[in-house]
Computed example of a mutant assay.
Amino acid sequence: MSQITLLSPAKLNLFLHINFRRPDGYHELQTLFQLLDYGDLLTFNLTDSSDISITPEVKGVSLEDNLIYKAATKLREQAEADGKTFSKPGIEIFIGKKLPMGGGLGGGSSNAATTLIALNHLWKLNYSLDQLATTGLQLGADVPVFVHGNSAYAEGVGEHLTPVELPEIWYLVLHPGVHVSTANVFSHKQLTRDTPKSKIAPALEGDLRNIANYCDLMSNDCQSIVCQLYPEIRQAIDWLSQFSPAKLTGTGACIFASFSDKQRADNVLSQLPTNYQGFVAKGINKSPAFERL
């Protein structure tokens, strides 16, 4: 096999608690990731050259700064250092982009993780998921959850993962048309950084309905700061909350609300104001990329 196409799924943070800032500048957190059956579509084609190309170019992002390119380069360098050989060392990557940049849906991290697992497969490197996750953590804190491909409860900076089974319900995800800087949010003086660590794991061992109710009660510590910095996001939350309680995912800009069935979510999507973009997706517990492989 020298070519494969994989879905690079989005994620939602059903809640996000920030416990403290570490001496190295990273933040300890607790969060619950749910994967979605919606995302970017990546096609990988091995070539005889040594080049790594990405089509189309991502506007405003140089090739060297693209997480997909970084993931492919780092994996190939690691494999070469480990003495692995390549029949086709080059790679052409085509992106069918659907996820907005700076949306809090993990698009870049998911793309990087999908690149790692796809090339591990195509290049027949036989690295374990734990090894790929360790490589991915160097690219971003959210990359390991996509490498493992499970909805998961996360601690640390996001690298300590516990797979969970979550209700596979429907979500309406809305983008209010602004770009949020994660760095600005995490460096903000008023950001809550002292939420006590919760003993969340026992709650996740209950039935799915209890888990859903538990998540509804939990907050996103970034939401108040993001709404302060970006009033458009507060307005979007107010609009969507008319139909179902809405919440920020990650550091935004996307927000989401859950619905009992697809028809209800589609109905709200049909009423979306013209200045918003949105989509309906189902929450899933296993990445479609793993089923494809």
Rank of each mutant, 00 (worst) to 15 (best):
T135G: 15
L41N: 11
K262A: 05
N126M: 11
P100G: 10
P176M: 11
Q235P: 00
T85N: 13
E205L: 14
D207C: 04
V143A: 02
N66Q: 09
E28P: 00
E168P: 06
I233S: 03
D194Y: 04
T115R: 02
T55D: 14
G83V: 11
E155I: 15
S287C: 14
A113R: 05
Q3N: 09
L272K: 02
L12Q: 07
G149A: 13
L129P: 03
Q34R: 14
G103A: 15
Y127Q: 06
L125N: 13
Y153T: 02
S151F: 07
V185L: 11
L229A: 10
I211T: 11
D51F: 10
Q138F: 02
N220E: 04
E80N: 12
T115Y: 02
F243Q: 02
L166H: 04
L217Q: 15
K199Y: 03
K74Y: 07
I95A: 06
I54H: 05
P288Y: 10
E57F: 00
P273W: 13
A257E: 10
A118S: 15
T55K: 12
D266G: 07
G39V: 09
P288W: 08
I169G: 00
G283A: 04
F33L: 10
L36C: 06
E165I: 14
T5I: 06
A141E: 11
A265P: 11
V145L: 09
A79D: 06
G107L: 14
P202E: 11
V61P: 03
P9L: 12
V143W: 00
N19G: 02
S219I: 15
N150I: 07
S224A: 15
K98V: 08
Y276D: 05
H148S: 04
I4D: 04
N66C: 14
F94K: 13
P56Q: 09
R76V: 12
P23I: 11
Q263W: 00
I255S: 03
Q223W: 06
I93C: 04
A253P: 12
A118N: 13
K11Q: 03
G103S: 15
S87W: 08
S49D: 15
K262V: 06
K59T: 12
E64K: 11
A201W: 14
A152L: 12
G278W: 07
S258G: 11
T115Q: 07
H188C: 02
K247F: 08
P9C: 11
S258N: 09
Q242T: 03
N285Y: 09
A246P: 10
I284P: 00
V143M: 00
L132S: 04
S109F: 01
C222T: 09
Y38A: 10
F256M: 04
S2E: 07
T195V: 13
S241V: 15
E168T: 15
K88C: 09
K11P: 01
K286E: 09
L29F: 07
D266V: 08
S241G: 13
D238N: 15
L248C: 10
P56V: 01
K247T: 10
G149C: 08
R264N: 06
R209V: 13
L272N: 00
M101W: 06
T135A: 08
L99M: 08
L42I: 03
Q242Y: 00
